[in-house]
Amino acid sequence: MSAAAAPRAGSWRNALFVAPYLAVYLALLLYPLLAGAWLSLHKADLFGGEVFVGIENFQRLTRDTVFLQAVRNTFYFVLLTVPALATISLGLALALNRPTRAAAVFRGVFFSSSVLSVTIVTLIWRLVLIPDGGLIANLLHLAGRPPIPLLSHPDLVLPAIALTTVWWCLGLPMMLYLAALQQVPAELYEAAALDNAGRWKTLTHVTLPSIRRTIVLVVIIQCVLQFQLFGQAQLLTQGGPNGASRPIVLFLYEVGFRRWDIGYAAAASEILFAVILIATLAQYLTSRGKGAER
């Protein structure tokens, strides 16, 4: 900021422009964050009983098999969805990066599910996944096979939720890749053509290296998003069977708003915050590097 931009430099009155937002930010984001950190050090319930217990809530978390299962589920879910999303959407973007009308229509189709809310997505997919008359069961029936209880089998439930999620979230990474592909200088392709590079070689030596940072960015953004899995699991399975599909956020929701063990829930939310903070820092460093490169 140059001083010329602000002739009445350093005036408190200038801060009036940012004051309304800052007031909302402090009251509704920063204060709850700090109060939550404080609360996580207490044994607290809904009725105002608060006893300072230090890090006991966190120690309890490390012993809580339900929480540990939720952590495992969450990481497994991220592992199931993020590589699938990052590669499938890359394939689609590579195929649809053309100026034709048909490509535009396809892009529109693959992005369309992204505008739906999680409640509608799960409503639709419940009727795809259920063994009792679902779409997959009907298709299996046509092939002469018995239905598969996708949502009630402990080994299949997270892959089924992951499938639902990939269908829902495919559009955004595809669009990010398309935007990046448009930025690849045409000269690079011309040079590759002059070198008689084949399609595969052009892809691996020109296209992919050129959009390297976007690939990293997509992976980080998706890790952050998928780590916060909640609605799909809560609506499709309520975390079942036997907690096989309970993610961290659902654990937090149940402890905080069903059992009202709020100090303990606050501790779980601090763990979530720490993980997301690390991922967001990684995203910030990647984006900043990208800006500097241009």
Binding site: Y21, L22, Y25, L28, L29, L30, Y31, P32, L33, A35, G36, L39, V224, Q228, F230, V249, L252, G256, F257, I262, A265, A266, S269, E270, L272, F273, I276, L277, T280, L281, Y284
Partner: peptide, 20 residues
Amino acid sequence: LVLFGLAVPEQSVIITRHQM
């Protein structure tokens, strides 16, 4: 300070926000 807020997920402030 505002930029820092980009890293705060909604779920991690939910308990105290609800109390408030």
